[in-house]
Amino acid sequence: MDIVSILITVALVILMIAFYIMGRMSQNKLPQEHDKSIPRINDDFGEVTSSIKEDVAATDGSTPVVIENDFDVLEEEITEIKQAATPRQLVLFIAAKEDSSLSGDKILEVLPKYQMVFGEMDLFHYPIENGGEPSKLFSIANGVAPWTLNPKDMAGSETPGLSIMMQLPSAIDDRDAIEILVSTTQLISKDINGILKNDSQQPFSKQDAEALMASLDD
């Protein structure tokens, strides 16, 4: 792993720690029933993905994998709130396609389309309410130093990729949180001409989504 990859990894770890601390401070209490104000977003928009090597936001040109349109694990009617047994961070990536970059102008155009709002730490956040107070479900950061997505800096720029971070347990049912995270990032990835990756920067698949759901029982 070269020095650039090491620096990206270290910076991401620092961001994850910061968001973990901020997330724990904002979670004064969790709702006792499913939050009806948060729409259930099924994965009806599964998109084609590829893969990248190491932790550099670029692709290796492997054969695309189609994410199936429905998750069997999500089909049951959910009646009780579910929270992760162990606090942790979920991390995904959106990488540029091979021999290309993600347009900063396109990122600024697309993120608000999917309810992402620019805010704390100069990043974009998916806003929700926690006990009536403003909070966030997940955040999107730049994949390169200084890791921020300030519109003034992003305009006219390019980046090799984006990092997505979500703290569990969340302020809502964690099954809903994972559905929203996966569906939203798939759509964002498609619209900015990028490729969605799992935490190992491998093609994000139906099996990855099922594993995230299953991990709530760990």
Rank of each mutant, 00 (worst) to 15 (best):
D44E: 14
F45L: 07
E47Q: 00
E47L: 01
S50V: 05
S51A: 15
S51M: 14
I52A: 15
K53G: 14
V56L: 12
V56I: 05
V56M: 14
V56P: 00
V56E: 06
T59K: 02
D60Y: 13
S62P: 09
I67W: 07
E68D: 14
E68C: 11
F71G: 04
F71L: 12
D72W: 08
D72E: 03
D72H: 04
V73Q: 05
E76R: 06
E77G: 11
I78V: 11
E80L: 04
I81H: 08
I81D: 10
K82Y: 10
P87N: 04
P87M: 06
P87I: 00
P87K: 09
L90A: 02
V91K: 12
L92D: 04
F93I: 04
I94E: 01
A95Q: 02
A95I: 03
A96E: 07
A96R: 07
K97Q: 13
E98Y: 09
D99T: 11
S101V: 00
S101Y: 06
L102T: 05
D105F: 05
K106H: 08
I107M: 08
L108V: 06
E109W: 00
V110E: 00
L111T: 09
Y114F: 12
Q115M: 00
V117P: 01
F118C: 03
G119R: 05
M121G: 04
M121T: 09
L123Y: 10
F124M: 06
Y126C: 12
P127T: 10
P127H: 12
I128L: 12
E129H: 01
N130R: 15
G131N: 15
